[in-house]
Design a protein around this nucleic acid. Structure first.
Lengths: 129, 129, 129, 129
DNA sequence: GTGGTCTAGACCACG
DNA sequence: GTGGTCTAGACCACC
C-alpha cells in the first residue's frame, strides 16, 4: 500500500495519496492507532517532494482520519474506519450520479443507460482489471 | 439551447459550450447548414469572455462539427450529426467507465456497483430531473 | 480589512488571513458574491509569499466560505455568512472553555474565576483596546 | 499526581509536566524538600521520552521550583510554594486575557462576552468536571 | 489576468 | 527523528 503514484493521470499527487490512505483504512490494511509512514519516508518512497506528502497528510488530518502524536508521527484516528468507508462509497455514488445525470440531460434514455452500465460492469470483471 | 453556463461546477466553460453544441446537433435542435450564434452574441448571452467562445468554436471546427462560411460566420457541418451522436455516447461511456474502474480499484464489488447503478438510475426517472 | 499581518505573534500567517476573512464576512464588510483580493495582490499587499495566501484561500474553500469562479478569482460563497458567524463564536467559546476547564482542574474556585473574568472584561473596555 | 499525559491535545508534553508539578506544589500535594520522581522513573510511568522529562525538569530548575540535591536527584525548592501559587494564577489570567482580547478584536461585545463567561462557568460546576 | 500544483530548500518546536 | 510553516520560483489550465 502507498506504493504507486501516477504523475501523469491528471489526478493531483496529493489527492492520490489521500485516496490510497482512505482506501487502506476502509479495507483494514491499516488499523486505527497505527502510524502512517513519515512524511520524509513516504516522500522518498514515492519519489515525490516532502511538501506534497505534507499536504496530503494535512488534508487527512482536517478530515479527522489522521491524528498527530507529538514528535512521533501521525496515526490513524480511532474513529476513522466508518468515516473512510462512508466516504469511499459516497465519493463513488456522487461521481456516478453526476455522470448519469449528465447523460439524462443529454436525452439518453434510461434503457440505454442501463445497457451501458451492464456492458461496462461486465467489462470490468472480464478484464480482471 | 446554449443558455446556461455554470462557472462554479468545475467543468471548463469552453467545454460546457462544446457539449451543448454537440448535444444540440445530436438531438436535432440545430441542423446542418444552420449558423451558430456569432462569438460576440453568444459571449454576450452567456455573460462569458469572448475568448472562451472563440476557443469552444475553434475546438468544434477541429472536430469537424463547425465549418467556417466565408464572411458570414460558422455553420453546422453537413456530416456532423452522426459524429455528434457517436460522440455523445462515447463521452458518456468513457465517463462511466472511468468511474466504475475507479470504484473497482477501490474494492467495491461488482454486485455493490450494480446496486448503486440501479438506485441511481431509478433516482433519475423518479425525480424527472 | 486584510491589512495587517503580525509575523511574530506565533499565529501562522495563513491562519491570520483565514480569521480576517472570516471576521470580515461575519461583520458584513465583505458580502456574498464579492471577490476577495487575488492571491498575487494580497501576497503583495501583505508582503507575504503567494503560497501562503494560496493555503489560506484553499482552507477557506474547504470550509465553504470561498468559491472559485473560473478564471476570474475567488468569491464569497452565498451561504457563508451564517457559517462565519457561527464559527467566530464557537471558536471563542471553545478557547474560553478550555481556559476555564484548565483553571478548574487546577483547583481555582468558581468565585475566583468569576472575579478574574470580571476584572479582565473591565480591563478591555477601559483600554479601548 | 503526575499521572496522565495527553499526547494529542496540542499542549507540549514537557509543558504538561511542568504544569502538573507547579499545581502539585501550589496545592500542597508535594511539599518543599520532597524529591520529585527521577527522570527515568517518571519517563517510564508516563510512557514518555526521557528527554522530555529532562526538559521539563530543566525548565522547573530555571524557574527555581526544583533544586538539584547532589547525588540524590531533584527536590522542591524551599521558597517555591508562593511562586507556584502566583504562577498558577498568572498563567490563567494571561490565557483568559488573550482569549478575551481576541474576541474583542473580533467585535464581540462586552455583554456577549459576559454571557459567554457565565454560561461556561455554570457548565463547569454542573458537570462537576 | 486568475487559481492550482509541484519542487527545492530553509527554519522551527517537539520528543 | 517527527511534523509545521514559510519562501522562492516554476509550470499548468482557464478566462
Amino acid at each position: 500500500m502507498l506504493r504507486h503514484i501516477d504523475a501523469q493521470n491528471g489526478i493531483p499527487i496529493y489527492e492520490q495519496i489521500i485516496r490510497q490512505v482512505t482506501i487502506a483504512v476502509a479495507d483494514g490494511s491499516i488499523t486505527p492507532g497505527e502510524h502512517v509512514p513519515s512524511v520524509r519516508e513516504l516522500a522518498n518512497r514515492l519519489a515525490v517532494n516532502p511538501n506534497t506528502v505534507v499536504r496530503a497528510y494535512r488534508d487527512l488530518q482536517a478530515q479527522g482520519v489522521l491524528v498527530p502524536v507529538r514528535g512521533t508521527g501521525l496515526a490513524i484516528a480511532a474513529d476513522s474506519v466508518s468515516k473512510c468507508l462512508e466516504q469511499r462509497l459516497s465519493l463513488i455514488r456522487q461521481s456516478l450520479r453526476s455522470v448519469l445525470e449528465e447523460a439524462w440531460r443529454n436525452r439518453i434514455s434510461k434503457a440505454e443507460l442501463r445497457t451501458l452500465c451492464d456492458s461496462e460492469l461486465n467489462r470490468l470483471t472480464e478484464e480482471a482489471l
